[in-house]
């Protein structure tokens, strides 16, 4: 064994343990919303959201609401009988996220976490 710490040491580390615990509880809390193929077609939005959020949690929340809202909006419009083809309405969320990315998503200096990509030593 070299510098890499064992699993128990990693778990003893406060930050990591907190993340694991939070992740587990978060998953449990939302388990009832699980559905077969629930991520279908949403991968693009996840990538767009990462670019949009630029490592800032508030931007991530705003972006998630925006993109999720766009998906919901087109279905609401159909239910209200807006006289536009469902094929066009189905494009709305994608057009919106592309537009938002084109305007706000340019790669300026972003606040990448300082220790991202560094090997975890377990000494903090």
């Amino acid at each position: 064994m070299d510098k890499l710490t064992g699993l128990t040491d990693i778990l003893r580390h406060k930050r990591t343990a907190a993340i694991i615990r939070f992740g587990g509880l978060f998953g449990l809390a939302l388990a009832h919303t699980w559905a077969e193929w629930m991520t279908a077609g949403r991968g693009f939005f996840a990538v767009a959201l990462v670019i949009f959020a630029k490592w800032h949690p508030l931007r991530a929340i705003a972006g998630a609401l925006l993109f999720g809202g766009a998906i919901s909006l087109q279905l609401q419009m159909q239910a209200r009988g807006v006289p536009v083809s469902s094929f066009i309405l189905d494009m709305l969320p994608y057009i919106l996220s592309l537009t938002v990315l084109a305007i706000w998503g340019r790669a300026r200096r972003s606040a990448v976490p300082g220790s991202l990509g560094r090997v975890f030593q377990g000494t903090e």
Binding site: A35, M38, G41, L75, A79, G81
Partner: peptide
């Protein structure tokens, strides 16, 4: 009233459409 999904299986979208209707 009709709402089209654009797909045959998408539970989150179906749930939104159902509550919108």
């Amino acid at each position: 009233r009709v709402v089209f999904m654009g797909t045959f299986l998408d539970a989150p979208k179906e749930a939104i459409a159902a509550s919108a209707l």
